Simulated assay, not measured.
Amino acid sequence: MTYREPTFQELFSNSHSQQLAKVQSAHFVNLSIAKREITGVLKEIPTNLPNPKPYKQVVFERSSASELTTNYIKINWRVIIASAIIGGVIVCFVYQINEQNKKNKSKNLLN
């Protein structure tokens, strides 16, 4: 026994009606503004959604995350380098102040 494949409307009826309402409202608004009439636009209003592409045709790029990271670094390299330098200088100052405080405490303890 073979079964037919259920349609998008049968599987996701609520989502289908919401998407169809979006398509119809966009069509109505765009054409009513372009044609400056309401009755002519209602005759051409879509009653079905366009067929979605099957999932087999969808290609996911695996390198998209690395491309995003590379592009971010290319765009913001000056800020990244400046932040690293300023952060390093601040860490050095804090380290030196901490060392001086330790020396002062050890001198105070000896006196």
Rank of each mutant, 00 (worst) to 15 (best):
K56L: 09
A84M: 07
I90H: 02
N76A: 03
I85F: 08
N30T: 14
Q18H: 10
T70P: 02
A21R: 14
P52W: 03
T7N: 03
Y72L: 05
T69W: 10
A34W: 15
V91A: 09
G88I: 02
I45T: 09
Q24S: 07
Q100R: 06
F12Y: 15
V41Q: 00
V89I: 06
Y55V: 10
M1K: 07
N76M: 01
E44R: 10
I90W: 01
S32P: 02
E44V: 12
M1Y: 13
N98L: 05
Q96W: 05
A84S: 04
F93N: 06
K53V: 10
A26D: 15
G88W: 02
A65L: 15
E44K: 11
Q18D: 11
S63Q: 09
N111W: 03
V58Y: 14
P46N: 03
I38H: 08
P52S: 09
N111L: 09
F8T: 08
V94I: 11
K56S: 09
V58F: 15
I97P: 01
E61A: 11
I73W: 03
K43A: 14
F28D: 01
E10H: 05
W77N: 01
V89D: 01
I45W: 07
P54V: 12
Y95S: 13
G88S: 07
V23I: 15
I45S: 04
Y72D: 06
R4W: 05
R36K: 15
K53A: 15
A26H: 13
T39W: 15
I38G: 05
N111S: 11
K56M: 03
L110T: 04
I33K: 14
F28I: 13
T7E: 03
S25R: 15
R4Q: 08
M1I: 14
K107V: 06
I86V: 10
N104I: 11
L31K: 04
P6E: 08
V29L: 12
I86R: 07
C92T: 08
I81N: 04
T69L: 12
T2E: 08
L20M: 02
T47Y: 06
F8D: 08
T7P: 00
N71I: 08
E10C: 07
N76T: 01
V91P: 00
L20C: 01
T69H: 06
F8P: 00
E44A: 13
R36M: 11
V59Q: 12
S83A: 12
Y95G: 08
Q24W: 03
L109T: 02
V94R: 06
Q96K: 08
I97W: 11
L11Q: 08
V91M: 06
V91R: 08
N108P: 00
